[in-house]
């Protein structure tokens, strides 16, 4: 089961700050090129350091713990934290709960915006010109050095959810 899991591997050192991932994401999810509606955000720091940030699909997700209607669930097979917008009552508990700010409630569509890995074919990874974002099997990711980033995240998440 677990070896079927794939995750987004982000290598910030390869990111050239072009913002293509944000455009691809907002187009796929909201039908428009609008970074503010993207589930992935590219942070541009000084000296050319850029970090793309999106949902970590936590192992014990704070958003799921906060959602009273099971609109948000952790899929045990794929590991993805999915949202069923029909079950959302717009309380914004998830938005307040996520320690990493990875969910934003969209009052127009009445749906929280969070990364759903595009149902298994993430647009950001597909269009990133430098492969700074890759969608890889979880075990392959672990074996690579590049996985450090995700591992760091996992550690951070563990702390955040204690």
């Amino acid at each position: 089961m677990d070896n079927a899991r794939k995750l987004l591997m982000i290598a910030p050192e390869k990111c050239i700050s072009c913002g293509t991932c944000e455009l691809a994401c907002s187009l796929a999810h909201e039908g428009e090129f609008r970074p503010s509606k993207s589930r992935i955000t590219v942070y541009r720091f000084e000296m050319g350091v850029t970090i793309p940030m999106t949902c970590f699909q936590c192992d014990s997700p704070a958003c799921v713990a906060a959602c009273r209607t099971s609109a948000l669930v952790k899929n045990t097979e794929s590991g993805v934290v999915t949202i069923n917008s029909e079950k959302c009552i717009g309380c914004r508990m998830c938005e307040m709960a996520c320690p990493f700010g990875n969910i934003a409630y969209n009052a127009v569509t009445k749906t929280p915006m969070k990364c759903d890995l595009c149902g298994g074919d993430p647009e950001c990874a597909k269009y990133c010109p430098t492969h700074a974002i890759e969608y890889v099997p979880a075990d392959a990711a672990v074996s690579k050095k590049k996985y450090e980033f995700s591992a760091k995240m996992a550690a951070a998440i563990g702390e955040g959810n204690k």
């Binding site: 955000t41 942070y43 720091f45 970090i51 320690p99 990493f100 760091k152 995240m153």
Partner: peptide, 11 residues
Amino acid sequence: CRKRDEAKRMK
């Protein structure tokens, strides 16, 4: 800010 802070931490 949480999201930005998290990115900063990665940096």
